[in-house]
């Protein structure tokens, strides 16, 4: 394979050919599993459609799942971390300036004190 070479990182390697081969093998395995399935399975909506306690299913377009809070659980779990981090982003230019000057001051002290 001239042109597609292996990226060696010194510890491992990465070759797109292997990746494509793995992808194809995975596809073949999937296909085999699919072939072994029950061919007489009833695919009509009466068996695959959602059952909403007997109510009619809403038309597509009536349902909109807003994405803003998709990771609500994640943010809840890290609530205490976010309680610290979020208030730092004040949007106030003076605070931004203070952070920059503060880091500069800390580094200056470090550099002057530690020879």
């Amino acid at each position: 394979m001239n042109g597609i070479e292996t990226l060696t990182t010194g510890f491992g390697f990465w070759n797109p050919i292997f990746w494509v081969a793995g992808f194809v093998i995975a596809l073949i395995i999937t296909w085999i599993i699919w072939r072994r399935g029950e061919a007489t399975y009833n695919t009509s909506p009466s068996s695959t459609g959602p059952f909403l306690s007997g109510n009619a299913e809403p038309q597509p377009g009536e349902i909109h799942v807003p994405g803003g809070n998709l990771y609500w659980g994640f943010t809840q779990a890290l609530e205490r971390y976010y309680a610290v981090i979020k208030p730092l982003h004040t949007g106030n230019l003076a605070d931004y300036m203070l952070w920059y000057m503060g880091i500069t001051a800390i580094m200056l002290i470090l550099v002057v004190m530690v020879p």
């Binding site: 597509p60 009536e62 799942v65 994405g67 990771y71």
Partner: peptide, 18 residues
């Protein structure tokens, strides 16, 4: 990856909006 899944889902997925 997780946050881009969220973006992809919110922008492109779902039924066409009126």
């Amino acid at each position: 990856l997780a946050s881009f899944v969220k973006v992809f889902h919110s922008i492109f997925m779902g039924p066409k909006r009126p």
